[in-house]
Amino acid sequence: MINVHRDNDALTLRISGKFNFSCYKEFQDAVAGPAPARYVVDLSKAEYIDSSALGMLLLLREKVGDDAGRVVIRSGAGQPSEVLKLANFQRLFTVN
């Protein structure tokens, strides 16, 4: 499930449970429209992510002109954090 929060310069997507292809529509709807100064994808409440989640994050990065500073990922702990490390996402995003 994706909880969307918008403030002045950031759009925060708080994702809980499983982040996989079943979230695609919700994710697309959430990030549709003009890009904010930065997106914050909060995975601290996510339990599981698969490769399609990584694909969606990469496309979001493309949307902001491959600017690593404009997509912030809060990785939390557990499987999502390990998968992000395995995919070397700290090179492509601001992961904290």
Binding site: Y24, Q28, S51, S52, L54, G55, M56, L58, L59, L86, A87, N88
Partner: peptide
């Protein structure tokens, strides 16, 4: 393993783009 993961992620990103 790293290259496999990299390829897997690229395939996923391309697939998501196709779905778009």
């Amino acid at each position: 393993v790293s290259r496999f993961v990299e390829d897997l992620v690229m395939v996923s990103a391309s697939s998501v783009r196709l779905v778009q």
